[in-house]
Design a protein around this nucleic acid. Structure first.
Lengths: 259, 259
DNA sequence: CGGGAGGTTGACTAGCATCAATATGGGTGG
DNA sequence: CCACCCATATTGATGCTAGTCAACCTCCCG
């Protein structure tokens, strides 16, 4: 659609290529997807609950949360999406949103029409499977979040969340100590971990004083990755980030492109 | 493979047909899937954590839980699967199990080789998308469970769980009062809701005394669906059970069967 | 310089966990 | 058919984690 679209789509393609084998044809098809870039201000719902959308939202920059709420209006963030994520890929298959998408900080998204995604999966059947695989990793993250809020105390919940996002954002975790940009409020952390912002504040203080990590307004500084990881019982296995090339399965063996 | 397989596969096909449009060819392909029926005793892991599986497990009878655990060994059930569910459909795409599957009571499963599922999606590209759509409903259930353990108190958590399973098991909820078979222990309910079995016991007592529902060893008796639903803030929308035929989207328009 | 969102801290409360004791009931072996 | 056993259910007493309420601070932005 516009010249910047393919630049914006590269991180998405990289993500897919991490876990699946793509032919050159399929790569070109992904990069050729049309899209309209959009700036979203912090705390703004760009997909409302129950809304019927005709496009999926690829995160280009910033952070996006998926919000649901209980009967009393208490909010729960059920997923945090980072650049390169297709935040509502499932909307292709389920256009009526069962949850809202809100920018956690100022964010840039690329809106990709469902029609284009449908057309590309029709022309390249293997892409349907590749997108499916990617959304399965999102499901594994959801499972881990259930364990997090269901069976971990406040300190472990927050440590696990910080570890997961450091990992997903590609922070240099092997360094042991490092910083990564992470612009969220304590209230948003509370909504993601099923706690109150007051308690999040106390836990962050204890993480800081314990020399594990410091959470600032704009970034997180991890002081001791190993201890933070231990505190959060974090095992990155579920993120499927270390799939070896020969393990990148391919269900549909050839692409049978139909033009 | 054996004559009983297609009988066992019918509920699975029915489930898929609820949300997607299938051609006769695709229907036959689903019913023609090979499978080995297996009886699993209660509390038995039939897929272990980290195990590499080469087949998916279709639940034919009984109940199955997906188990994960935290560092102290406290267990969390992240999903409950009912007859007609393909419990680990994602294993086709991600063969290394990131969580264990355990029968909650005596159960019958049909093991379907990944190779057969790969072959069927290769021959009928639309099936890849149809299976993907189905797994998206599972993901929506995971989201709701996060809200449940994150932002609801014990009574609401259990009420919500009972409502969801009544609904998914096809209980006659329109009757207002009814029973449905649900053979789980209070300990298993605790593992699913992030509570202790002691507290589950107290909450079940209050649901019983409040005239909302009675949870027995073999079945649940709902006394007042509306009040139970209100107590659990249950809105079945996320289960996508009421999709109207014209809304059953189809991405890959024709099947282009390759034989 | 004023206002508002977000952060920080303290005092108190409540919901659920923990520990412990007893009851129940289905299954098994004698 | 009965006695026993083990898993599960039930109930009470007590403690702790996190929630609630409230005050004040800090920083950013207009």
């Amino acid at each position: 659609m516009d010249a910047t679209a393919s630049t914006n789509l590269q991180p998405f393609l990289d993500r897919l290529a991490l876990r699946s084998v793509l032919t050159d044809q399929e790569r070109r098809a992904i990069l050729g997807l049309p899209g309209r870039a959009r700036q979203v201000r912090a705390n703004h719902d760009f997909v409302a609950l129950g809304e019927r959308v005709d496009h999926a939202s690829l995160i280009v920059a910033g952070l996006v949360g998926r919000f649901e709420q209980n009967g009393e209006g208490a909010r729960q963030i059920t997923a945090i999406h980072v650049p390169g994520d297709m935040a509502d890929l499932h909307s292709v298959v389920q256009p009526q949103a069962t949850s809202a998408l809100q920018a956690l900080c100022v964010a840039t998204i690329l809106q990709i029409p469902h029609a284009a995604l449908r057309s590309v999966t029709a022309r390249h059947p293997a892409l349907a499977e590749i997108l499916w695989r990617d959304s399965m990793v999102d499901a594994a993250i959801l499972s881990q979040w259930i364990v997090n809020v269901g069976r971990r105390d406040a300190k472990a919940r927050i440590a696990h969340l910080l570890c997961e996002l450091a990992f997903r954002l590609g922070a240099p975790v092997s360094l042991g100590a490092f910083s990564f940009p992470f612009q969220v409020t304590q209230m948003q952390l509370a909504d993601a971990t099923g706690l109150t912002s007051v308690h999040v504040n106390r836990v962050l203080k204890s993480l800081r004083e314990g020399g594990l990590a410091e959470v600032g307004r704009l970034e997180v500084t991890v002081r001791d990755w190993d201890r933070l990881r231990a505190a959060g019982e974090f095992d990155p296995n579920y993120l499927q980030a270390d799939i070896k090339p020969h393990e990148r399965l391919r269900i549909v063996q050839s692409s049978h492109a139909v033009t």
